[in-house]
Simulated assay, not measured.
Amino acid sequence: MADRLGRSSDQTRPASIGRNPRGALAVLLLALAPQIVQLLSALAGVILSLPNGNPAQIALDDGAALVSAPAALLLLANGPATADPLASQVVLALIYTYPLVVLALLTLFVRPRGPQDYYGGIVLVAIAGLALWASSDLAGMRGFSFGPGTVPRMFAILLMGLGAAIAATGLLRDGERLTGFAWRGPLFVSLSILSFAVTVRPLGLVISAFTSFMIAALGTPDTRWKETTVVGIGLTACCSLLFPYALGLPLPLLPRFLLQ
């Protein structure tokens, strides 16, 4: 994986000017990850008949936001203080997408000396950008009083600075090569969470919880399916009692077509 992201076999070779297309592509995909996830969610909604939005309209809106973001920022900077706030997708493009696109262009033309630090720092910058975007509509400081968005933005800025420093260290100083990534566990756990999110309303809590648990169990090759099935049934029973009755959450237990 390290070689695919542009790491040379010589650990002590200084950072050099050279093409690193696979590393740049990885950073570019990270830059477009929120838009891709939103589009995939809309496509899943079409398949499952959920009101997640029109995929074509979402793609057009995201594209328009990416194109119009620089002009909107200039208008906001040069306009009156009462100018309308920027749309959420435009803010996402300015705070998250465009900075990572710049890092992707940098990655295309350099080979970092410490790839693990370099790409890890970029991931921290991405997380901080998402945090800044998520807290962008919260009120900030009012005089000496903290607003609800003050602390999230403060920590996000600190994390972004830390990530940039780590990435710069990986670019300029010798460091560890990228190690192998255990993809199976994170993949199936993420799929189980996504499965629960998109199936709990149409299929009910019983089926969605049990299915999500079994998908998560695929994350390890050492799963014992008999024991896993028993535990899954027990956890599903607990969830069926906990969420609708103990916590009072309006979650259906059975599929929608059975309740109609």
Rank of each mutant, 00 (worst) to 15 (best):
M1F: 06
D3R: 13
L5A: 08
L5T: 03
R7T: 13
R7P: 01
A15P: 14
P21G: 01
P21Q: 00
L25G: 10
L25V: 09
V27A: 11
L30M: 11
I36Y: 09
Q38Y: 08
L39W: 14
L40D: 03
A42V: 07
A44E: 05
L48Q: 07
I58A: 02
L60W: 13
A64N: 14
A71E: 05
P80A: 11
A83Q: 14
L86H: 01
A87T: 06
S88T: 11
S88H: 02
V91E: 02
I95F: 06
T97E: 00
Y98S: 06
L100D: 08
L100V: 07
A104R: 04
L108E: 04
L108Q: 05
P112H: 13
L124A: 09
V125Q: 09
I127L: 11
G129D: 04
L132H: 03
D137E: 13
D137N: 14
L138Y: 00
A139R: 09
M141R: 09
G149R: 02
G161K: 13
G163Y: 06
G163H: 08
G163M: 08
D174R: 11
L178A: 11
G180K: 15
W183S: 08
P186L: 02
S192E: 01
S192W: 02
I193S: 07
P202Y: 14
F210I: 10
F210H: 12
F213M: 10
M214F: 07
M214W: 11
A217F: 05
T220G: 10
R224I: 10
T229Q: 13
V230S: 15
S240E: 10
F243I: 06
G248T: 01
L251V: 14
L253H: 02
L254F: 14
P255S: 01
L259P: 01
